[in-house]
Design a binder for these strands. Sequence first.
DNA 1: CATGATCATAACGCTACCGAAACAAAAAGG
DNA 2: CCTTTTTGTTTCGGTAGCGTTATGATCATG
Lengths: 116, 116
Amino acid sequence: MSLHLRSSQALRLWREVTEQSVRDAAPDLTQRQLALLLVIYLEAPPHTVRALAARLNVTKPVVTRALNSMGELMLVDRYRDQKDMRNVLIKRTVAGSLYLEGLSEHIIASAKELPL
Amino acid sequence: MSLHLRSSQALRLWREVTEQSVRDAAPDLTQRQLALLLVIYLEAPPHTVRALAARLNVTKPVVTRALNSMGELMLVDRYRDQKDMRNVLIKRTVAGSLYLEGLSEHIIASAKELPL
DNA sequence: CATGATCATAACGCTACCGAAACAAAAAGG
DNA sequence: CCTTTTTGTTTCGGTAGCGTTATGATCATG
């Protein structure tokens, strides 16, 4: 058995959560930054700039810049791969985990109150 | 009975849909623009700039600019209120409906394949 | 009808992101 | 070794969003 949503429910869910994010003026991530953050936290490491860029179909500078921005917000961390000093590996942070935890709570709460 | 999501499911759903939007390079709306679009299409008209700004907790120029951008993409339309010529009323478009229809299909498809 | 309030938009200076290309550092491989 | 390849970052010029403030148009009210 799978999770079944109707069209009106799907959009309503998206509206609730997106609207909440806007209203709260939470760290104003772009779509790309958010997508990146979710991949980093939901997929198994290691994550490199190159792999992330390929996965999201964006250029490497986009990833570098997104990591700069989210790094300042402490949402991610990065360090050189000691095995191959060309690589940069992206690490999760406590702040990043908390941020996504907050997001998931919003999603869950909104889903719970969707009309059937 | 209400729609219950677990934390991992919620974030996975968000990742799937956000990632898809990024990969497809669909009209690159900001969070604010998307929130605005969803309110316009899911809430009953009439919609004015002022009311939308208040609802999303943003300034009026933000709404005007978002309507400019989305207007160029044909996602929304606007015209003067004939009853009160100070007001601008926002209208839905075919392209906007199609865009949100695509979004909802993405959401539904992703939800359907969430692990239980 | 004139003055003040209420709309939406325009103007201004600023910041952040964009794609493309150039670059620096490290590894690979002849 | 010394070139070539790979990896990530920086730079460049350009675009688009931001908040604040000013403006123009319309309505309400004395």
